[in-house]
Design a protein around this nucleic acid. Sequence first.
DNA 1: CGTTCAGTTGACCATGATCAAGAGTGGTGG
DNA 2: CCACCACTCTTGATCATGGTCAACTGAACG
Lengths: 257, 257
Amino acid sequence: MRNALTRRLEEYTALTDTDRRELARLSEQSMHIVQPRRDLLREGGAPRSLYLIVEGWGCHYRTLENGRRQIVDFAIPGDLCDLNLFILDRMDHSVGAITRMKVAEISREVFRRVVTTSPNITTALWWQELVSKSIHREWIVNIGQRNALERIAHLLCEMFLRLESVGLTYGFSCDFPPTQNDIADATGLTSVHVNRSIQELRRRGLISLERQMLTIPNMLALQQVGLFNPEYLHHRMLDRHTDFGRTEQGLLDGTDG
Amino acid sequence: MRNALTRRLEEYTALTDTDRRELARLSEQSMHIVQPRRDLLREGGAPRSLYLIVEGWGCHYRTLENGRRQIVDFAIPGDLCDLNLFILDRMDHSVGAITRMKVAEISREVFRRVVTTSPNITTALWWQELVSKSIHREWIVNIGQRNALERIAHLLCEMFLRLESVGLTYGFSCDFPPTQNDIADATGLTSVHVNRSIQELRRRGLISLERQMLTIPNMLALQQVGLFNPEYLHHRMLDRHTDFGRTEQGLLDGTDG
DNA sequence: CGTTCAGTTGACCATGATCAAGAGTGGTGG
DNA sequence: CCACCACTCTTGATCATGGTCAACTGAACG
């Protein structure tokens, strides 16, 4: 059984056995447990290590002066949070635990060694960074352009596919620990409205969601409701789920001059 | 006079004269003109070069099946769009021109040479990448948590500071070519509502905006309206504008295990 | 078995969307 | 130089999505 990070990076690139061993060793660094609803990293802080999520769910979030909170991404096993610290001075957001999380602390030195010795891994890590940037873009689109029902459908599709890519789905189901309040903070809605929208999705038979267990009996149907197009996840193996058959409209870039 | 890219990167790191010459040469690569409202890069395309914006404004955007458009970032001189192509297969969004744009096309080879010979520049480029990711996060917060007036105030603050960091402001003023429709697509509002909000900002004496010329007579006042905290831009020289004096709440990360 | 937290429901409200029409503004060609 | 066209900005009237407030239910955990 490959670990989540290895699985995740292999979504992008072919790793050698040496790479795999190297990655396995990364995850065996000093382990930490973060209790539910505690922070792993705090906005304004200057962490000295890198953290790899090995188990559990977390979220990246920012808070405003007026107390409102916006979750800007969820963090699941295989995710790093984040490469920031080698370049940026301070955390510009916080990372908190949703469930009990197991994280591997990777020191700068160890990380630097990997980067200098394994070009494959380095590229794969930057790939992860760029993909998560693409996910950010999609969240902007989600919150800016979709209505409540669509937003939630979209979020559920995204998380299901992301979990699938690290082997954390079981058939049509997966764990889904965020509360309706978390979903509200991630979609820019209120928990009351999230509640009503989820009931609507249930009523339509698109999802079942109870006791932190999400089931999507018909992924394509849910994708259609959420105007979901998985391209932005840049997974290699997503053909299974490709809903919209990528109409080959003029794909050339139109520089003129 | 340093060019915009140099200025921008020096926001992060100290460059040597060699670095500067290298950067200047980058901008002298084959130049292209993109006419207003034309696309430089199209979603789904697989560009073979990197583009550096030398003059004019553009925007990164995605479109949905239902025709709606979300601008996920603006692009101004000194911005690269983007490092994607060396790692990700295809563009997951489009880049279009708002004004007439002058862009420098940088071939993969040239870029690769720079990356292998100038570690300073390489790090600075990744810095730019991470900062733009942080900007994405802030846009999620902006659209998810702020009301119309706040969103627009926030956007204006951000763009002013970004322009300032590449030397494109004149006192309290700068060019601001996006139409109210563009602002609507960037903030997830309708142009009608953008119009009314802008009038409200004008009425309060917070901005003047006419003929693509933006003036912010009192930056701190506008920042307060927009709940704007410039930290996320990771500029070195932003102390001038630091409104909220970064209350030193527990900055340590709270791992417990 | 009580406390806590997540989920649920109802009544009412407000922000911002929609639709539609009209006023400036700038550019183009006759 | 003027007429026309296109585009952006502006305004008004009405509507709807989603927010707010508050109470209640139910499950989980000690």
